[in-house]
Simulated assay, not measured.
Amino acid sequence: MPEKKVAGNVQIVLMQERHLDALAELERLCFSQPWSREGLAAEQQDSTACFLVAEWEDTVVGYAGMHCVLDEAYVANVAVHPAFRQRGIGILLMQDLERCAKESGAAFLSLEVRASNQAAQALYQSCGFQELGVRKGLYDSPKEDGFILTKTFS
């Protein structure tokens, strides 16, 4: 297990085939309805997708992905391995997604987050996202509302 400070030693790279098994395992660790390896692999073929992986010493410690269509960018997923949370990895991933969104011509970046996921909400707010609405009953396992958060680029 690394010391508390990790972010400076983390590399953010484009998702590749070699990451898929670790990402599928990370999904199972982090989400009640995880994406499959096949679902993650399909994102590699999607021209609207930008999926990034955080690596620490050749170990996958997180990932984030989004889709850009016209001037809209939507975050599909963000996950950081539980043993590596609170070390700046989520911020690094979000900063690189934002860069990718801007390079793709997006006017804003939006996402949804579980109403109970206060840690994720704090991360997104620290990155400049603002709550714009609520999607009632968006999530299952357990059933829960989702907050709509958006960051507009100037």
Rank of each mutant, 00 (worst) to 15 (best):
G105A: 04
F108T: 06
G105L: 08
S32C: 09
V13I: 12
P82A: 05
Q11M: 12
E55G: 09
P2G: 13
A107W: 13
M15H: 01
Q125R: 15
D71H: 10
C50I: 00
G65K: 01
D96S: 07
L149W: 03
E3R: 14
M66Y: 02
D71E: 14
D140C: 01
V113H: 00
V113Q: 00
E98P: 05
E3T: 15
D71A: 14
F153R: 14
H67G: 03
F108K: 14
H19L: 04
D96V: 08
A101M: 01
P2T: 09
E3K: 14
Q86F: 05
E17R: 11
E144I: 04
R135E: 04
G146P: 04
Y124E: 08
A7I: 13
E72L: 09
S36W: 13
V60H: 06
N9W: 10
P142R: 02
Y124R: 11
A22R: 12
V134K: 11
F108S: 10
C100S: 10
V53L: 08
V80M: 05
S32L: 11
I91P: 09
S141P: 00
R135W: 10
G133A: 04
C100T: 02
A49F: 00
C127L: 14
I148D: 05
M66D: 02
G8D: 14
K5H: 13
V13G: 12
E103C: 03
L132Q: 15
A42P: 09
M15C: 03
A42F: 11
L70K: 06
K102L: 05
L111M: 06
A42G: 12
G39M: 07
F84W: 06
L92Q: 03
S126A: 14
S141C: 03
I148T: 05
G105F: 02
A54G: 05
L111G: 01
A42E: 11
L132C: 15
D145E: 07
S116E: 02
D21C: 05
A120G: 08
E144F: 00
S47E: 14
C100F: 04
F153M: 11
A49T: 01
A107G: 12
E72I: 12
F108A: 10
A54T: 07
Q121A: 06
R87M: 07
R37C: 13
K4V: 14
L40W: 08
G62T: 10
L132K: 15
L23Q: 05
F147R: 02
D145W: 07
L20V: 10
S32T: 10
V53A: 11
H81K: 06
G137M: 06
N9Y: 15
D58S: 10
I89V: 08
R135L: 10
A122T: 13
F108V: 07
A73V: 01
